[in-house]
Design a protein around this nucleic acid. Sequence first.
RNA 1: GCCCGGGUGGCGGAAUUGGUAGACGCACGGGACUCAAAAUCCCGCGCAGCAAUGCGUGCCGGUUCGAUUCCGGCCCCGGGCACCA
Length: 836
Amino acid sequence: MQQQYPFKEIEQSAQTYWETNQNFGASEISDKPKYYCLSMFPYPSGRLHMGHVRNYTIGDVLSRFHKMKGFNVMQPMGWDAFGLPAENAAIKNNTAPAKWTYENIEHMKTQLKQLGLGVDWNREIATCKPEYYKWEQWLFTELFKKGLIYKKTSTVNWDPVDGTVLANEQVIDGRGWRSGALVEKRDIPQYFMKITAYAEELLSDLDKLDGWPEQVKTMQRNWIGKSFGCEVEFPIIGQDGNLKVYTTRPDTLMGATYVAVAAEHALAAQAAQNNPALADFIAKCKRGSVAEADVATAEKKGMATGLFVTHPLNGEQLPVWVANYVLASYGEGAVMAVPAHDERDFEFAIKYKLPIIPIFENTVWRTRELSRPRDDYEYYEFENKKWKNWYSEKNEVITINSGCYNDLFPEEAFDKIAADLEKKSLGKKRTQYRLRDWGVSRQRYWGCPIPIVHCEKCGEVPVPAEELPVVLPENVVMDGVGSPIKKDPRFYETTCPTCSGKATRETDTLDTFFESSWYFARYASFDSTTAMADERANYWLPVDQYVGGIEHAILHLLYARFFNKLMRDVGLIKNDEPFTNLLTQGMVLKDGTKMSKSKGNTVDPQELIDTYGADTARLFMMFAAPPEQSLEWADSGVEGANRFLRRLWKATYDHVELGQIAAYTTGDLSAEVKAIRLQLHSTIEKVTDDYGRRHSFNTAISSVMEMMNALAKLEGNDEITRSVRQEVLQNVALLLSPIVPHICQAIWAELCPQSHILEAGWPVADQSAMVQDSVEYVIQVNGKLRGSINVAKTETKDALEKLALQQPFVQKFIEENMSVRKVIVVPNKLINVVVG
RNA sequence: GCCCGGGUGGCGGAAUUGGUAGACGCACGGGACUCAAAAUCCCGCGCAGCAAUGCGUGCCGGUUCGAUUCCGGCCCCGGGCACCA
């Protein structure tokens, strides 16, 4: 055995060994329970970043741990290969997106292999390959035929100078990132998937996901946003027809003092026809980005349309305003405004001097301040221009200023008003989801072509299965102005599959979330040429453990859940949900912000691997923070991880230099050696729990470090001590091997040359080594730590109380005028003497 | 703005079900070894104090024998907001 820790040699030879012996090839033929461990596949940006190292190490630790526990493990890897950065890089470097992408894949694959992942590389997929995207084109046509995909117009960011659609990311402060031109909103026809048809199931099935973090489920619930409310119709004065709004608070209808519509609303356009100022205002609203965050944080602005509507209950005239805070895409694109009980309406009403009528009064407040005149408190609240939410779900408020609806609790008012509206045919109760259908059309090149042919005679015709895939040409020139396939007649000129007449292909491509919504199923059927997913998918699915960044908590995970249900409903797979257990990894931050290429604050993991080796990189990543927390990157600390591995190597070297010995099985031990065995087996128990249940890799590592620190202090080279040392080192190699597999394989080979670590299995704690007959009690006086005592485990509560009171460090704190009020004994832990 | 997280020594973090705050590691200081340096090993290390002891988990308040942990109200930081992936 070499005296120095030769990480390069060790890692190289371990990786070659795994590849030669195909140790991580996954097969469906096995007696063992299956364990499908999936890490979110990378976008091939060029080089591995720290987030990747963290993500794939976590996945690998869980995979290797379960393999050792006796599971039939599959851990695949692939490439989420379509996307915007490839186009940008292509323009910048004067190359084709495909070439750039494939080169990146090659490089990153080498890097991933250097990390020593137990991945089945035979199943590798890249989403930009026709044999992959063929199947999503097939699914698209099936869903199109089922009516789950439809076309409608929707709003995009339009750069008037470059003449191109921009992603939200490409809009900076309302301007195009390249041209600097003020971005406009433009409506264009696009394909949508009816995810709303699955809203209820996507919501209710969250309750089945016991293995998901509560946080993620809550975010998804709120995103789907099921609400119970009411449609309310306001007859438009001087016109036929009503203005329809949706509200979750019909109980506040008597407090409505105006109605507001989005700039995109039909009524706004109508009013603007002979009102140039309004037309100008609407045009201004249509500037800027379509991102909701931008809309919601913009200063509230509005303009009266000159139109009025009739309040459906009291018949009063309410003005119709156009307001930039009303979202066109939610509800009806119009709201009834109740300034007294909605913060945004309040702000708007103050700004434009619109009336504010409070229709709730806090019952608690009313009782307390009954003598105060009502006008006075209204003045008091509003003069300070502070909106105060008196409304509460707990029936602490009661209606006022509401005519025949006075003196009601909110729920009573809700029902009564809804009933009256229904009687007048001016409204009815309605369940509403915040979730919107998913627009999947992109006016970009580097994506999966939408398999639709446009025929003048036959309309939109899905490409028949036998003609799939519609192949995206890869050898293209990106000139920065629009998508190459939109300008290439060889791509778009075709014949209609139905009538054989002249027709054109759709030149939009699919949102790249499309590819990542079903790849988990493809890994199981990676080489099938006859189906998107075959019976092997039903063996491996659902994924037992999914690992990925918290930033995907909503969109990606929701779309993947949606696709799983779509694939189930076309008969491909049987499971309802794709991911049984989810681990959302925290972000790797630097200088307090997300480490990302666009922010230019990345640390290259390659340097780390070159200098210290993959094991050090993996150990440090797992040790620095628990996986779900964000990890603030600091260069120092890596050294400490490397130091530990060198110590582990040295300890093994010192031990094996004295000759081979079998691990301890039986025989009398000194107290000191017995304590080492106690610690070892407690550590096995703790580490097993940390990996399996808690996913707390940092504490697993620290308890192994403590074990090694204790072992270092153990002296003596007699046979029995050496046999215990052998036992400790063997178990440490096993316990750490999911995290640092290369060094553990190497030291195992030195400790036990006749066997291989991959055959050894996960260790089980020896309960007999953990038997203790005394226990340490911490003693507090009035909750403050004052000392501790070591007593026999069998001691009774009475005896413990007496013993505690006898201690001088307890007596010291009982002053003369004090008496012992009570003594609290927490078994095996603590005694608290309460005096006073 | 809305939804979801987080805040503990100089730093990363630990404390698993309300029961010893600061495990483990980094950095730092002191010492040993060395001609010297690196590496390694040993000791110290929340703050104040000579000490006894007191204070201390973002801030304010509450519940409890006991609160980093539970409750109410704030402040700050991070993630997501539907075309970054």
